[in-house]
Amino acid sequence: MSSVTIDKAAPTRTVKYGSMSRDRKWALRWSYFFLTLFAIFSLLPPIYMLITSLKSSAEISAATNPWWVFHPTLENYVGLLTSNQFLRFFWNSALVSIFVVTITMLISVPAAFALARMRFWGSATLATGVFLTYLIPDSLLFIPLFKVFALFGDWTGIQLINRWYVLLFIYPTLTVPFCTWIMIGYFASIPKELDEAAIIDGASWFQTLTRIFIPVALPGLIAATIFAFTVSWAQFLYPLVFTTSTDQLVLPVGIITTLIKGDVFNWGQIMTGALLGAAPPLIIYAFLMDYYIAGLTAGATKG
């Protein structure tokens, strides 16, 4: 007990403040240990990709240390970036993602607002239903969806299968439920008095949404945007099933179908393509992270 007594008359003496700081020190050590482990685990594949992308085909197949580049070359990058085909994949992916994000936001933000705020009969059940649809694995849905579009083509003569824009109809079935759910959560966290104040100030429901809710829920909106973008950029199964012609492919499928010829894997270009494909989401995350974390609702009400 005497060791924890703090004597103000002797401020220079080292005082042991019980176990608090020792606990913290150990907690930090463990945190660093596991975080380092996790960082190595998740960074190894991209590093390996980067290393491989800088090698020539000859060096890749040579029996040298795979973790070192002996003759670095940019030929894979030059090869892909000058290939019209690869740029076409990139362009298709960009188009699909931008359209899907736009469509998703245009549907899920008003839907979330209605479900969170405009109390109507069945709104709570509907909100849960929206979330439940997200729980259905997308790998279960591609066959019936394919059938739907095939039938649609037969009936109307409008052929959507094997067109890149068929993905604009399909991806929202994955993104809208989840984004609506995220936005319901954000909108629900906005104090009710805020929309009541807006209504008394004379705002319509639509004005309340556009002038109060969207600016206040911006972090949530950005989170939802990032999600929708990631889903549509990285989706593999659906484009593999729904698009086959080379000019209709998106990046992930395009890389696999054109750079693997029979049993010949063009590893250097595959890795380069994958790295280039991962760049846009990385850049977007880096720019929007601050927004993602920032809480704009601070100061709306008490506190």
Binding site: E193, L194, E196, A197, I199, I200, G202, A203, G299, T301
Partner: peptide, 17 residues
């Protein structure tokens, strides 16, 4: 409410942040 020509002050202020 908007056509009643009233103004309301809320307990938690409800300012637009």
């Amino acid at each position: 409410p908007k056509d009643r020509d009233i103004a309301m002050v809320f307990q938690n202020y409800a300012l637009y942040p």
